[in-house]
Amino acid sequence: MAHEVNLHYRPALQWGELDPNRRQSTPVGMWAWIWQRISAIAIVFLLGLHITLTYKPLVQFLLLTVVIFHAVLGLRVILLDFNLVNVKYQKALIAGLAVLGVVMVAIIWTGIY
């Protein structure tokens, strides 16, 4: 009976690989994580610009926004890490903290200019 068949497992599929519907099915928590990383890179970049082009309101505004965005998402993880907010509110936390972030940007910006 035993005739030789060569069977090969396909290497594991990776997240999103060959998956046309993955992006639209990505949950908000994952986006929060991705955007926090992106904002981190943006901060580094804008910091460079901020030093090169001093006192450019556009750069300053972008830097402020991105820093606060990044901070607010970091705050979310801290709150969840230490169980200060129940994990079941993780999505509400994103919305709530985003609003807080916008308010902070507005206050700081109008405070400066």
Partner: peptide, 17 residues
């Protein structure tokens, strides 16, 4: 779309190891 789980070797179609 139906696709096998990620991060596991695919044995056949939707079956993973």
């Amino acid at each position: 779309t139906l696709r096998p789980l990620n991060h596991f070797p695919v044995v056949k179609d939707l079956v993973v190891d």
